[in-house]
Computed example of a mutant assay.
Amino acid sequence: MGIPVMKRCCCLELKWGALIAALVDWGLAGTLVGMTNYAYLAAAMWYVAVAVHVAHVVGCILVVASVFVPNKKLVMVYLITGIIRILLDIAFVIYLCIEFFENLLVAIIIGIIGLILAVYFWYVIFSWFKKLGGSAPVDI
């Protein structure tokens, strides 16, 4: 069975949807790296978060390259770093809820919206991976 895949993304061909998702996610991941506040996180968590987001930016660049040079191996970096990033973002939102709920309600809401976007973008790129020749065909 497996995860069902998309055939189109927002009325666009999946290729262009993957390109748009990678570019927007590239901006979000880069922005989060720049906005990470060292004061709120323990040192080890901060370094891990920055490293994962930088690796994810590289994955976004490789997805953009895969749109123009169709190669499923380029997309795998994004899929792996995307899952790790989503798990880290979930941990960060939980941390914000526990530690700073009254003071950072806007940050929590933005974190949840970013998490939802990250999951959607991962799903679009996963569908693109399947279309490029992943382990199951997309046109079933």
Rank of each mutant, 00 (worst) to 15 (best):
V52C: 08
I108V: 12
L23M: 11
L23V: 15
Y38N: 08
I61M: 13
Y95K: 11
A42Q: 11
C60P: 03
W46C: 13
A65C: 14
I84A: 11
F100A: 08
C9G: 07
W122Q: 15
I83H: 01
I83Q: 02
I61R: 04
V106S: 06
K73S: 11
L32K: 09
I108F: 01
I125W: 04
G27T: 03
I125H: 04
K72Y: 02
P137D: 01
A107H: 08
G133C: 03
V138R: 03
V75I: 11
K15Q: 15
G114T: 07
I108G: 03
C11E: 07
F101Q: 06
I86Q: 02
L115H: 09
I86K: 01
A65F: 12
V124I: 15
G34E: 09
A21Y: 07
I86P: 02
L14D: 11
I112A: 13
V69R: 05
G27S: 01
Y123H: 15
I90A: 10
V58Q: 07
V33T: 14
S135M: 03
K7S: 12
V119Y: 13
W46S: 14
S127Q: 10
K131G: 00
L14S: 11
P4D: 08
L12R: 15
A55D: 08
R85S: 14
A39R: 13
V64S: 14
C9H: 05
P4Y: 01
R8T: 14
I80Y: 00
L88M: 13
G111I: 03
W122T: 11
F68G: 10
L87D: 03
F68D: 01
I110M: 11
Y40D: 12
V50D: 09
D139H: 01
A43W: 09
Y40L: 13
C97K: 05
I80W: 00
E102N: 10
L132K: 02
V67A: 09
I125F: 05
L115Y: 09
V124P: 14
W46V: 08
K7A: 09
C10Y: 14
E102D: 13
V138L: 07
G133P: 05
F92D: 11
L32F: 08
D89V: 01
G111C: 08
G59Y: 02
V64D: 02
K131F: 05
A22G: 08
S66Y: 02
F129T: 01
W16D: 14
I116F: 14
N37A: 09
T31H: 10
M1K: 06
D139R: 02
Y40H: 12
V5A: 13
P4S: 13
L87F: 14
G114D: 06
Y38A: 14
I110P: 00
